[in-house]
Amino acid sequence: MSDLEKTSTRTGLGKSIEEFGDVSRSFYTDLRVVLMFIGDITRISGHLIRHPQKMRWNDVFYYMNLCGSQALPIVAMICLLMGLIMGFQGAVLLRTYGAELYIVDLVGFTILKEMGPLMVAMISTGRAGSAFAAEIGTMKINEEISALATMGIEPSRMLVIPKLLAMIVVIPLLTVFGAVCGILGGFLVGSGLMGIPAAAYYNRTVQVLTLSAFNIGIIKSLVFAVIISLVGCFRGFQASADAQGVGRATTSSVVVSIFLIVVADALMAVLCYVLGY
């Protein structure tokens, strides 16, 4: 028997993710654990789609409020400022070419396809992803995860699926909301600083922003929502049972999540280019 097979494995949730978190092992083993976790979530999701009454809807609404409604002010603020910043940057350049109106295209496209989804994802990583990791990590230290498992309840059904579903719903909505705020920021610069009439700005916006740009933003935000929730939860389950365990899990969830978001964003940019969007 190899060492790996001899390892005492945890039953239930992704079998052994906890132990593997404590003892760092080969990349292959880590990858296996991640894949097992994803497989677990997929299986349970499939089961819940067939038995929706088993879903903990109250939890879903709780997280929709926590990760969605409560994030509105910060998303509004940051996306508005992003629009303003991009507007200012573009204004200087475009004015030298006398192409002021293109500020609409610049801000609109960038916010809708790129900065909006990315900013909302970053904010949500800091707010939601880290909270998921801390919550699950603390539960693990208090043996609440063990208690769930020995009750015969799959911890991932209780703890991961409601968060994942809530995020899949609210992150795209936040992204749309953020895009509107960003475009408003661009408008403030365009009309206030560059003297573009409000009607012209509006008409140009409606004219240039295509459905495909909108779709790309939504698809990106969906991918980011999945990354943030799964990384946050996974790191929480991996938290080691010492005093710093939860802190480390939280930090790591943020770092890993941001890294994966940027990588996914790059991959999707390449994909969009290849597909000609």
Partner: peptide, 18 residues
């Protein structure tokens, strides 16, 4: 999981869901 439902476990700190 079915077998686990037939017994109860109490943990050191109670392990209540906070």
């Amino acid at each position: 999981r079915t077998l686990m439902r037939k017994f109860g476990v109490t943990y050191q700190g109670g392990a209540l869901f906070g």
